[in-house]
Design a protein around this nucleic acid. Structure first.
Length: 414
DNA sequence: TAGGCCATCTGGTCCT
DNA sequence: AGGACCAGATGGCCTA
């Protein structure tokens, strides 16, 4: 396989299908063009005046409205569009040129040593700008390494985004029309963990507004509104943080908050945002026909059975609004969560006695629970996403408590 | 049209 | 040496 073929195969699928590159110009063509256009200029590649100076804070450019040089793109490649989204233009790195130039300079110096000077006339050598000759093989190697590194970096970021998507599905804002941004997803997830941790710490149903306010701390106004919308609340800006009011003042219960993201067992689609007034555990709510979030109702019940295992952090440090503060949520319940870093000594993928691969106890819980979708998932794929694993354990407890609850109601009616 | 968000490229740094 | 990780830089897309 030639270098150009490797280059062509190493670019993204978008480039492979030709949808994101210059029409009629494949990556291999661009590389060929770049090779052909390569000139032998001796533009300094370092220093404050160099257009190829390394990136860093000192060279950070300002807003887009200001003029920007085209992306550190080597001049010899021309001023084609930079490496924007879906543009897989494989630019020749500055470092490659520099490394090549250095090597070439060394070769040249060696040659001059032999000749006694640049002109070979025996006179003292003059140092300065010289034309540089680039070795094709060397340049290709550097170029190939750069392309491979780009591919790895791209895949790494894709994995990061994949994990972020999983986090988006786990947080209580499953909007299908407006995707949470990365930073807002992280903030909301942090708040969500914090809010649930506080519920566990309290061991009882917390105040609705306090819960939602915790969810929306530090979020932008649009995101807070989105979260409030998902929770059927209305968010209004008041002061530094959005103030949330219940859209249903007479129903300031957890029916309002937790029904929207009730986990749909049969579909296995994660938090459910479809109206939020669907079937639940059997406890009816006052208005809107909604039922309490079954998982959460059991969650609260389960939480009540656990005594807080530690003291809460100081209030000033407990707020998730301080990004630099102590952000570990007040959570340390091994009965519910089995965190990876403190998990069992069994290695990942360990086969438990019942023959299923156990990951953080998820499969064992799934096997004992009524969550068929998750059980299938756990049995089919050992690499169940961590959020699913947590949710599964969560639902296992929920299912068990629901059974007890149903038995209780049955006995009570009799 | 400015600004936010994103994908990508890139070079530096650290680790194995 | 090579890969992972990180942060800067850049252009594209989208929205208010």
């Amino acid at each position: 396989m030639s270098l150009q073929e490797m280059v062509f195969l190493s670019v993204s699928p978008a480039a492979l299908d030709g949808s994101s590159v210059t029409p009629g110009l494949k990556a291999s063509d661009m590389l060929t063009s770049a090779l052909a256009e390569r000139t032998l200029e001796s533009t300094p590649t370092r220093g404050p005046d160099s257009p190829f100076r390394p990136s860093g804070a000192h060279c950070k450019v300002s807003t887009k409205s200001q003029h920007r040089e085209p992306g550190g793109r080597p001049e010899w490649l021309g001023h084609a569009p930079g490496p924007g989204r879906d543009q897989q233009h494989d630019r020749v790195p500055d470092g490659a040129r520099e490394a090549e130039a250095e090597e070439e300079e060394e070769e040249e110096e060696e040659q001059e040593e032999e000749d006694g000077g640049p002109e070979g006339d025996g006179l003292p050598r003059r140092r300065g700008l010289r034309r540089r000759r680039v070795t094709q093989a060397r340049w290709d190697r550097v170029r190939l390494r750069r392309i491979e590194a780009n591919t790895r970096e791209r895949n790494r970021m894709h994995g990061l985004n994949y994990a972020l998507d999983a986090l988006r599905r786990a947080v209580p804002c499953p909007s299908r029309t407006q995707k949470l941004s990365k930073i807002e997803t992280l903030r909301l997830a942090r708040n969500y963990i914090w809010a649930l941790s506080e519920v566990l710490s309290a061991g009882k149903r917390p105040d609705l507004l306090a819960f939602v306010q915790t969810l929306c701390r530090g979020l932008s106004q649009p995101t807070a509104s989105l979260v409030a919308g998902c929770l059927q609340l209305s968010a209004r800006p008041s002061g530094p943080e959005p103030r949330l009011e219940a859209a249903f003042p007479g129903r300031a219960t957890f029916d309002t908050v937790y029904t929207p993201y009730r986990f749909r067992h049969d579909a296995g689609t994660g938090p459910c945002a479809s109206g939020g007034h669907e079937g639940g555990s059997g406890v009816s709510s006052a208005e809107g026909g909604g039922r309490p979030f079954p998982a959460y109702s059991a969650f609260c019940g389960l939480a009540a059975t656990y005594q807080p295992l530690y003291e809460r952090a100081s209030p000033e440090c407990s707020s998730p609004t301080c990004d630099g503060g102590a952000l570990s949520p007040p959570l340390h319940y091994h009965g519910i969560f089995s965190l990876k870093h403190e998990g069992p000594s069994q290695p990942e993928g360990h086969s438990d006695p019942d023959g299923t691969r156990c990951h953080f106890g998820a499969c064992r819980c799934a096997a004992a629970s009524g969550c068929a979708a998750l059980r299938r998932c756990a049995a089919a794929d050992a690499h169940v996403p961590y959020d699913v694993q947590l949710r599964e354990q969560f639902l296992t407890a929920q299912d068990q408590l629901n059974i007890v609850q149903d038995q209780f109601y049955t006995a009570f009616q009799q």
